[in-house]
Computed example of a mutant assay.
Amino acid sequence: MNNPTIRFNFLEPISLVDRTRLKRFTSLLFKKQRKSLAELQYVFCSDAYLLDINRQFLHHDFYTDIITFDLSEKGQPITAEIYISVDRVRDNALNFDSPLKRELHRVIFHGALHLCGFKDKTAKEELEMRKMEDKYLALYERFT
């Protein structure tokens, strides 16, 4: 699909500047990974909101920074929802001594990479995921 729809929805406030550029780059990430994207919704929410989703849909009783739902039909371009806890992103930025903007972009790309097939359940998978996040963060800094 040539013109995927990417939306940012805010249930909790967080500064996300240059949204058009970020949407264009996220579309490029999918193209670089040879994945066809139809529609992607990012929902920025609170820890409590994401914990409820984690309990209800994944049966996990812990906080997380991101949950990705691939809603695609088999053989069709990707349609998905990505929920991001702004509380976790802020905490991670502090814990990793990273600028908030960079940590937010990292999590946005992390969700997209999950949809492209990258996982992070094992140490090896997590290392590969971090490598890909770093790659796309560096590319985004140069993207116009």
Rank of each mutant, 00 (worst) to 15 (best):
L29K: 06
S98W: 02
L137S: 02
K23M: 14
F10M: 07
F143R: 05
G111F: 01
A93F: 01
T20L: 12
A93V: 09
L29I: 15
T122H: 03
T144N: 07
F143M: 02
R55W: 04
I84N: 01
I66W: 04
L28W: 07
R21I: 11
L127T: 11
K23S: 13
S15T: 15
G111D: 05
L139T: 10
D18S: 14
L51S: 07
E128C: 01
L37F: 04
L100T: 09
T20Q: 13
K32C: 00
K23H: 08
E81Y: 08
A38S: 12
R55L: 09
M129S: 09
R24T: 14
T122A: 02
L115Y: 02
E128V: 11
D47E: 09
L104Y: 00
M132V: 08
D47W: 01
R21V: 11
K31F: 08
Q76G: 06
F8I: 06
N9V: 15
K23R: 14
A138D: 10
L37Y: 00
L58S: 02
D97W: 11
D47I: 03
V86S: 09
F30M: 06
K74P: 06
F96C: 12
A48E: 14
V86T: 15
G75S: 05
K101M: 11
T144P: 00
F25P: 04
R142F: 00
S36M: 12
F96Y: 13
Q33K: 13
T68H: 04
L139S: 10
E12V: 11
E81Q: 14
K23C: 12
R24H: 13
Y140Q: 05
Y63C: 11
N9H: 15
D47Y: 00
E128D: 03
L94W: 09
R106K: 15
L58E: 05
V17E: 13
F8L: 07
R55K: 13
L104N: 09
L115H: 00
H105K: 12
K119H: 01
F118N: 07
H59K: 12
K101L: 11
S36N: 15
L37W: 02
S15Y: 01
E81R: 13
V43C: 08
G117V: 09
R21S: 05
E73Q: 15
E81G: 13
H114S: 04
Y140E: 11
S85A: 14
R130M: 08
T26N: 03
S15C: 10
T79H: 06
V107Y: 02
T144W: 01
E125D: 10
F69S: 03
S36E: 15
S72D: 12
L50T: 06
E125A: 05
R142D: 12
E128R: 05
